[in-house]
């Protein structure tokens, strides 16, 4: 009886294995095709479309990082804009100080963001819940004021990206676009890979119950710090690429709360704790912006109302409206939250 049972499950596993393999190939082909179209975009679109796409990809990466922290790690940060600022300033100052090609200076934003995140993990992770959220906000504000008062970082005037001169307009636009595409697709790939591995399991266990996670041997603090550092690296790089688009960093704009607000809006709208959510969220966010941003402050009122309506009517975000009707799992890491 027992061996019969075993062979039945083995056979079942085998057939699903073949099916998984087939859908895997179809998915891979679709993904590669999509990626090919996106890479080729600069050859058949204008500069304004490319600049919009840069914004879209960088906002997407920042929202994905915020969603990773809040949706998978249970860590609510409202100071993610500190990493936008740190990343952008790191790239700008390294590039202009050493007259380095801006693209070659991008690793500086990753490294500086990681170092900054590691150092400030020490005070930040002494705080919990709402205190952590407020703490991150204060951290971002302190960083803005520190930059505002640092002459070597251009103080209130900021830094222009002078190393961009001499690069043709087409190449500059296309290059920034490709960097943004790499950041968007790269961060999705990194998070997807993380969530499928051991760290993904550990993260979900910590989100469910910290007490039970540590009883099972999960190093709760280390798991959270790893998450915080990965989110920082993604946000910092996205910030640097976003400001390659505008060619100028300044404390007020670069360390602006608007970055975090947009990230939260995108994640909440699309669906917290899913990889698909921010993708839908960012598209909706940009559709709304392109349609309504000319209405001034009414635009922000509309955004706020939509966020509230989403939280009340569909707390799982737009993506949950789809999965409620149809069981689909394009990234293969779906978890049911109850």
């Amino acid at each position: 009886m027992k061996s019969e049972n075993l062979s039945v499950t083995a056979a079942a596993a085998n057939t699903t294995g073949v099916a998984v393999n087939k859908t895997y190939w179809i998915k891979s082909i679709i993904l590669l095709g999509l990626l090919g179209v996106l890479i080729a975009l600069p050859w058949f679109t204008g500069y304004s479309t490319q600049r919009l796409m840069v914004e879209l990809f960088t906002f997407y990466a920042i929202a994905l990082a915020w969603n990773l922290l809040a949706g998978y790690g249970g860590i609510v940060s409202v100071g993610q804009h500190v990493f936008v600022g740190i990343g952008a300033y790191a790239m700008f100052s390294v590039s202009t100080t050493f007259s380095l090609n801006p693209w070659l200076a991008l690793p500086a934003s990753i490294i500086v963001s990681i170092l900054f995140a590691l150092i400030f993990a020490v005070p930040m992770f002494r705080l919990r819940g709402a205190y952590f959220a407020v703490g991150t906000w204060v951290l971002a504000e302190m960083a803005r004021i520190a930059v505002l008062n640092s002459d070597w970082l251009g103080a209130g005037g900021g830094i222009p990206l002078t190393t961009m001169t001499g690069i043709s307009r087409w190449l500059r636009n296309a290059g920034v676009y490709w960097a943004a595409l790499a950041v968007g697709a790269g961060s999705l790939a990194v998070i997807w890979w993380l969530m499928r591995g051991r760290l993904g399991l550990a993260l979900l266990s910590v989100r469910d119950s910290e007490a039970a996670a540590s009883a099972s041997g999960v190093n709760v603090l280390r798991t959270k710090v790893i998450l915080w550092v990965i989110a920082a690296a993604i946000t910092g790089t996205a910030g640097a690429v976003a400001y390659m688009n505008t060619l100028q960093v300044s404390p007020g704009a670069t360390f602006s709360l608007n970055w975090t607000a947009a990230a939260i809006f995108i994640a909440v709208l699309g669906g917290i704790g899913t990889l698909e959510g921010p993708l839908i969220g960012v598209i909706v966010y940009f559709l709304l912006r392109e349609c309504f941003s000319s209405y001034g402050s009414w635009y922000f009122i509309i955004l706020g109302c939509i966020a509230i309506l989403t939280m009340v009517l569909a707390p799982g975000g737009a993506w949950s409206l789809i999965t409620r009707r149809k069981q689909i799992d394009p990234f293969g890491i779906r978890r049911i939250l109850s």
Binding site: A202, S216, G217
Partner: peptide, 23 residues
Amino acid sequence: PEGRRLFPSLTVRENIELAQHHG
């Protein structure tokens, strides 16, 4: 622990494998 404290986001197997990795 008292009250079982299983991880609701994980499957039965994942609950067990998580502890196995860290034990």
